[in-house]
Nucleic acid binder design. Structure first.
Lengths: 129, 129
DNA sequence: CGACGATATATAGTGTACATAGGTATATGA
DNA sequence: TCATATACCTATGTACACTATATATCGTCG
């Protein structure tokens, strides 16, 4: 424990949410259409309304892992001297996406309840102050 | 990379979901009412419909961390010779819960979309086969 | 035409949290 | 009595994202 982690700081929870949902949202984004790394990062950022913002160090190792596992295939497009590595899901990748979706479907109701109760707690506290 | 992680296996995604949402669900469960560790684990398991099942090694270190950070306070109840460490949220804990809820509120819509698209992908594949 | 920011890919080192697997101990029912 | 449920705790490993850093091209503004 180097620095005192502050759980009242949203950045802590953003990190945790990114960890849990990051790869799932990457798969979902690639299911929409093939994308290259940079575009992928922006797509996930927009999907979360800027809440989890994947960094380069999240995107590129993820692409490498998914490629090695046969979940995506990538081909390099050269556009005006600038290289782009466009990735798309394989059948195996879609199978992984399906499995992830089923798991998250089970978790979502609990998450939703927890969110609602948490926002109500917020209101109660505001009323008191 | 010791063993080949199989992303088509739900247990992989359960692990990731637990990582992301575990502590948030613990806070939510404690917001409902004070609980002791063992009860907490069961409450979270039930909330997720058995999807993420927190282990002892998740619960007790979490309780320790939350106590050290001042997010919960615990008192020992002895019931028939068996000790129970009952924990409840402090104001600071409720503040942390609120911050977490706001973050998850932002992420939920994207997650929901991703889940729906993933389940549709499943149907498409079934139709094809 | 040079400085700068946006685009684009990639890795090394670090921090954090859950799982695995183990340990201790009491109450309860077959 | 012996298995199971209850109840708490931790050492170690794994897996993920973040910070910082490196490289290189393109468009724009001064």
């Amino acid at each position: 424990m180097t620095a005192e982690r502050d759980l009242t700081d949203k950045s802590y929870w953003r990190m945790l949410a990114s960890r849990g949902a990051g790869r799932f949202l990457v798969l979902a984004s690639l299911h929409e259409r093939p994308r290259h790394g940079y575009e992928l990062a922006r797509a996930v950022t927009q999907a979360c309304d800027g809440c989890c913002e994947p960094t380069d160090a999240m995107i590129y190792p993820t692409i490498r892992d998914l490629t090695e596992g046969g979940y995506i295939v990538c081909h390099v497009e050269t556009q005006g001297g600038r290289e782009r590595k466009v990735c798309e899901l394989t059948d195996r990748g879609r199978e992984a996406y399906r499995a992830a979706a089923e798991v998250w479907r089970s978790v979502l109701p609990a998450l939703q309840e927890a969110v609602e109760a948490g926002l109500n707690a917020r209101i109660e506290q505001e009323v008191l102050s």
